[in-house]
């Protein structure tokens, strides 16, 4: 669905994309993760035909974004990070306008509008003005508008920005549903837990380059090569740290007075063995939680703790 090879787009300030490559199959839901200024938005804008690349290849559904932008727009739905709405239009008018802008003809046009109203949960208030909607509802309306022409690929740039937890949950459910319906999705987000929950693959991007790709928990299940153990103790963590030092394959990720987060090579078996050793040493443990390496851990590993 997306073929990007050696893509370059450098802005005056120096940031942008440099030699970026990515391949996304149909039915994939790929998360794009990286620090601010890494090039996520630039990549999405190029794929949505808003920005021309300086060089390289960018194809969507086999069509070059520079040579055939209209062909690309016909199969892409793009939702920007801060998307505006026409506040002074009614909900139905808003959808009708974009149905016309996507050249939908009757009877598909009416069907698409009704489908969008149902999808956004606004079918009981189509005559309300858009300005009457809360941010969460506006985001649902925007997503429904983006899907009016039934795109094969969705490009979402920080779609959960500013949404409350419930709206975020709803958005995640909608994206899962769309993915199940066969829509390929490329989503950039700083909310790693959301991506971890829905994505089949995560692409790490830094300084305009693809620095790593990992299959997310959704795809890889519990088979993580490392396991993260979070522990809280009745007393200090020093005794536990001594035991950890004896283990060649363990390292401390986080440490405070009575809390310790460590990473062990292996899986649940190794975590159980570690717990048994702690208990055998007479250490009082009030909390023990072992799970595969989270996306947040991977992110920290890839980009460090410093924000840019």
């Amino acid at each position: 669905m997306i073929e990007v090879a050696s893509l370059r787009k450098i802005f005056r300030g120096g940031r942008g994309l440099g030699d970026f490559s990515l391949h996304l199959e149909s039915r994939e839901l790929v998360g794009l993760v990286g620090p601010n200024g890494a090039g996520k938005t630039t990549l999405i804008k190029i794929l949505s035909t808003l920005l021309p690349p300086d060089s390289g290849v960018a194809r969507v559904a086999g069509q070059d974004v520079g040579a055939n932008p209209r062909g690309v727009r016909a199969v892409v739905g793009y939702l920007p990070d801060v998307a505006g709405v026409y506040q002074d239009m009614r909900i139905r008018e808003f959808l009708e306008f974009f149905a016309d802008a996507y050249r939908l003809k009757e009877p598909n046009r009416s069907a698409a509008i009704e489908r969008a109203l149902i999808r956004s949960g606004l079918s009981d208030r189509p005559e309300d003005f858009v300005e009457q909607l809360s941010l969460g509802w506006k985001q649902r309306l925007l997503l429904a508008k983006t899907l009016l022409h039934e795109p094969k690929l969705l490009l979402l740039d920080e779609p959960a920005t500013g949404l409350d937890p419930l709206a975020r949950i709803t958005l995640r459910q909608q994206l899962k549903q769309l993915h199940a319906e066969g829509v390929a999705i490329l989503i950039s987000s700083h909310i790693l837990s959301d991506l971890e929950d829905i994505c089949t693959r995560i692409v790490f991007i830094a300084d305009g380059k693809n620095v790593a790709e990992v299959a997310s928990a959704v795809a890889e299940g519990a088979a993580a090569p490392t396991i993260r153990c979070e522990m809280e103790f009745e007393d200090s963590t020093s005794a536990a740290e001594l035991i950890l030092k004896e283990l060649v394959s363990g390292q401390v990720l986080e440490k405070s007075d009575r809390r310790l987060v460590v990473e062990l090579r292996g899986g649940p078996k190794e975590a159980s063995a570690f717990l048994q050793r702690l208990l055998a040493a007479g250490i009082l443990i009030t909390h023990f939680d072992a799970r595969g390496l989270s996306l947040e851990d991977r992110y920290r590993r890839a980009f460090g703790r410093e924000s840019r």
């Binding site: 949505s48 035909t49 808003l50 209209r70 727009r73 016909a74 892409v76 793009y78 920007p80 801060v82 998307a83 505006g84 709405v85 026409y86 506040q87 974009f98 802008a101 996507y102 050249r103 508008k145 022409h149």
Partner: peptide, 11 residues
């Protein structure tokens, strides 16, 4: 109003 992206990415 950040609505121009919607126009430019439509047909």
């Amino acid at each position: 109003q950040r609505t121009i992206a919607g126009l430019l990415t439509s047909l």
